[in-house]
């Protein structure tokens, strides 16, 4: 098990805990997608895995050992903008490599590849303040993909991309992840995306957070996304998950007024 969350309690305020004895794991090389209504606690889970938050009780284990503070074996693409405003796009994307002391030649090779991947070649010398929202997301994406950490935490990475680029990114992400046998913990609101990309989907909901259902996506590692889209199994899975999510949504909003007290 690469990531193991066991019996975790967590809450921002004492009265309405988000997690209560929550269990979850990600195997080595596994692509796990999290689906759930807005505000249910998906980002909180990623923050726990990144070591940015500490559980109040229970344990978070990474690669067999307890997390003490920041987990720098993960690449984390957060929901927010964490580009350094004083560095250009190229310098931002290079940051993880520079911190690691990667040799110059390898660095520039990887930079070229990353820039091409996310289509930001022309914007390489721009500062983040000169980028559109989608361009910022792409730069962040390139930065989290450039240094091949054993695990990627991705919080709605493709939300702001156009459909075309999204598809390219899907294929690119899968091939990178498979080549390096990386694990991915992937948050999205896009049901189709979660089913296409992942090995397993967790539909989450409720407060305290529960796993409403665990769905296995039986496509195998060498998957052809276009083929899958056409298959009846895919349509069935999609409809099933959509139904679950609707339930989770209803529960979330029914819960809301009670949670306030």
């Amino acid at each position: 098990m690469l990531l193991e969350i066991k019996g975790v309690h967590f809450g921002y305020q004492q009265e309405a805990p988000i997690l209560q004895g929550f269990n979850m794991h990600v195997a080595r090389g596994e692509f796990l997608a999290l689906l759930g209504p807005s505000g249910c606690g998906k980002s909180t889970l990623l923050n726990l895995a990144a070591g940015l938050l500490m559980p109040l009780d229970g344990s978070v284990k990474f690669n067999g050992s307890y997390l003490h503070g920041i987990n720098n074996n993960v690449g984390y693409m957060t929901q927010g903008d964490t580009l350094l405003p004083w560095n250009t796009v190229a310098k931002n994307i290079l940051l993880p490599l520079e911190l690691r002391g990667t040799p110059a030649q390898e660095r520039s090779d990887k930079l070229e590849r990353a820039l091409k991947l996310v289509n930001l070649g022309d914007a390489r010398n721009k500062f983040p303040s000169e980028l559109s929202g989608g361009m910022k997301r792409r730069a962040l994406l390139a930065r989290s993909l450039i240094y091949d950490p054993p695990m990627l935490l991705m919080d709605e990475p493709f939300g702001a991309l156009d459909a075309q680029l999204r598809e390219t990114m899907h294929k690119e992400l899968l091939s990178t992840v498979n080549r390096l046998n990386e694990s991915v913990l992937f948050v999205t609101h896009d049901i189709a995306e979660s089913i296409l990309l992942s090995d397993r989907v967790l539909v989450l909901g409720g407060r305290p957070l529960r796993i409403l259902e665990e769905t296995i996506c039986p496509w195998g590692k060498e998957r052809n996304l276009d083929e899958i889209r056409k298959s009846p199994d895919y349509a069935k899975l999609e409809a099933h998950v959509r139904g679950l999510l609707r339930l989770a949504d209803a529960e979330q909003y029914a819960d809301a007024p009670k949670g306030d007290a």
């Binding site: 940015l52 911190l99 690691r100």
Partner: peptide, 9 residues
């Protein structure tokens, strides 16, 4: 920002 850069190592 600090957290993001610390995670990167």
């Amino acid at each position: 920002l600090l957290a993001a850069v610390r995670i990167m190592g």
